[in-house]
Amino acid sequence: MDKFQSGILVITFATLAIYILLLIVDVERSSKWLKWYQQMDVEEQKKYDPRIAICHLKKVLITVSVVGIFGSLLSWFIKPVISIITFGVIMVMFGFSISYIGAKNCLVIEKNGLPDD
């Protein structure tokens, strides 16, 4: 097993562990772990829903886990070079997830023109 195959296995099992932890913990409780949300003042916090970020994070973690499992299996059975490609794909996914989980994608859309009851 080369270093990229072992790296893929470590990343895959770590993301699975984080995903299982987020499944066990309540969404309301886990949304308090988001640092960007806690740094906002009360008025700003009303505009954002951190539960959306947790749902986005779960999607990213399960996608990374699936890509890691398939990449490690393919690298063992076909070619070890696939592990380098899979490792690169996982790193790109982690880089993309920073903006995907961030505050701009968790903005609550307000309904204009409807009276509040």
Rank of each mutant, 00 (worst) to 15 (best):
D26V: 00
D116S: 15
V92H: 07
G95P: 01
I11S: 04
I24E: 06
D41I: 11
F13Y: 10
H56I: 05
I90F: 05
S99Q: 10
R29F: 06
S6T: 14
V10G: 10
D49A: 10
V27Y: 02
M1Y: 15
W33K: 03
M91E: 04
I69V: 14
L74I: 08
V67R: 07
I85E: 09
L74M: 13
I8C: 15
P80E: 15
T12S: 04
E44S: 11
Q5P: 04
G113A: 12
V27Q: 05
M91V: 13
K47Y: 01
Y48V: 10
G7P: 01
S65T: 07
F4I: 01
L114H: 09
C106R: 03
K35F: 05
L21G: 15
T15H: 02
I98K: 10
I62F: 06
E28L: 01
Y37W: 04
Q38I: 08
Y19P: 03
E44R: 04
I69F: 09
S99I: 05
K104N: 12
D49C: 09
I20M: 09
P50Q: 11
I52Y: 00
H56L: 04
I101Y: 01
H56G: 06
Y37S: 08
Q39H: 06
K111Q: 11
I101W: 00
V81C: 11
F94S: 00
C55A: 14
P115H: 09
Q38Y: 00
W36I: 01
K35Y: 02
V25Q: 12
S6P: 01
M40Y: 00
S99P: 00
H56A: 06
Y19Q: 08
I85M: 08
